[in-house]
Lab assay of single mutants.
Amino acid sequence: RSTHNEMEKNRRAHLRLCLEKLKGLVPLGPESSRHTTLSLLTKAKLHIKKLE
């Protein structure tokens, strides 16, 4: 059980790190620190579409 908890903790930490990296790559506007994961991913998707 503790192994599972540790793996889950590591998974969440990795996900958080990846989202922070994404936040640095996507133009978010003036309220960049107030975005939810969903809004960050939505803006990333729109940004990628613009680049295509």
Rank of each mutant, 00 (worst) to 15 (best):
K49S: 06
L38N: 13
L40W: 14
A44R: 01
H35N: 08
G29A: 10
P27T: 14
K43M: 06
L38Q: 12
L25T: 00
T42M: 08
C18R: 00
I48F: 12
L28T: 13
R12D: 02
N10I: 03
T3M: 05
K45C: 03
K9Y: 06
G29E: 03
A44I: 07
T42F: 05
L17M: 09
K21T: 01
E8W: 10
H4I: 12
R34D: 02
L41K: 01
E20D: 10
K43Q: 05
N10K: 07
S2E: 06
H14N: 06
I48Y: 07
L28R: 14
V26I: 14
H4W: 10
T42G: 11
A13C: 13
A13R: 07
P27S: 14
L22H: 00
H14M: 11
H4A: 10
L28C: 13
N5D: 06
K50N: 05
L25R: 02
N10E: 06
T37V: 15
T3R: 04
S39R: 12
K50S: 03
K23F: 04
S32E: 08
R11T: 08
K23T: 02
L41W: 15
H35C: 12
K43I: 01
R11I: 10
C18D: 00
H4E: 11
E20P: 05
R34V: 08
L46M: 10
K23N: 00
K50V: 02
C18Y: 05
L19C: 04
A44M: 09
S33G: 11
S2L: 06
R1L: 00
R34S: 06
H4K: 11
R11V: 07
R34A: 07
R1T: 06
S39I: 00
N10G: 11
L51M: 04
G24K: 15
S32N: 10
L40K: 05
T3P: 08
E52V: 12
R1S: 02
L22P: 01
T36K: 14
T42E: 08
N10S: 10
G29H: 15
K9R: 09
K23H: 01
H14P: 11
H35S: 13
P30N: 14
I48M: 11
R34W: 10
G24H: 06
N5T: 12
E8L: 09
L17N: 04
L17I: 10
R12L: 08
K45N: 06
L15N: 02
E8G: 04
R34L: 11
L17W: 11
T37H: 13
R34P: 06
A13V: 04
L15H: 00
V26R: 04
I48S: 03
R12M: 10
N10Y: 01
L41E: 00
L40V: 07
N5C: 12
P30H: 13
H47P: 08
E8A: 08
L28M: 10
V26K: 08
N5K: 11
N5V: 13
R34M: 08
M7K: 05
H47N: 13
R12Y: 03
G29M: 10
S33K: 15
A44T: 02
M7S: 12
H35F: 08
G29T: 06
T42C: 09
L19M: 04
G24D: 06
L38W: 12
L22A: 02
T3S: 08
L38M: 14
L28H: 08
H14E: 02
T36Y: 13
E8D: 10
N10D: 10
P30Y: 11
K23Q: 00
C18F: 03
T37N: 09
L15R: 00
G24C: 12
T3C: 04
H4R: 13
L41S: 02
R12H: 12
R12P: 10
T42R: 13
S2C: 03
P30Q: 13
R12N: 08
K49E: 03
T36L: 13
L19W: 15
M7T: 08
L22Y: 00
H35W: 11
K45L: 05
G24I: 06
K43G: 01
A13W: 05
H35I: 07
H4G: 14
K21R: 09
L19T: 04
A13E: 03
N10A: 08
L40Y: 03
L25Y: 02
S33V: 15
H14C: 07
G29F: 13
K49D: 00
S32Y: 06
S2T: 15
L17D: 02
L38C: 14
T3N: 12
L46H: 15
P30F: 15
R11Y: 10
R11N: 12
L15I: 12
K23A: 07
L46D: 09
K21S: 00
N5F: 07
E6A: 08
E20A: 12
G29Q: 08
G24P: 04
L51T: 04
L41M: 02
P30W: 15
S32V: 09
L15F: 09
T36H: 09
K43N: 04
K21I: 03
R1W: 00
K49V: 01
L41G: 01
H47W: 13
K50R: 08
A44C: 09
S2Y: 05
T36G: 14
M7L: 10
L38G: 12
R11M: 06
T36Q: 12
E8H: 06
S32Q: 08
R1Y: 00
E52L: 13
T36R: 12
A44N: 02
P30I: 15
I48D: 04
T3V: 07
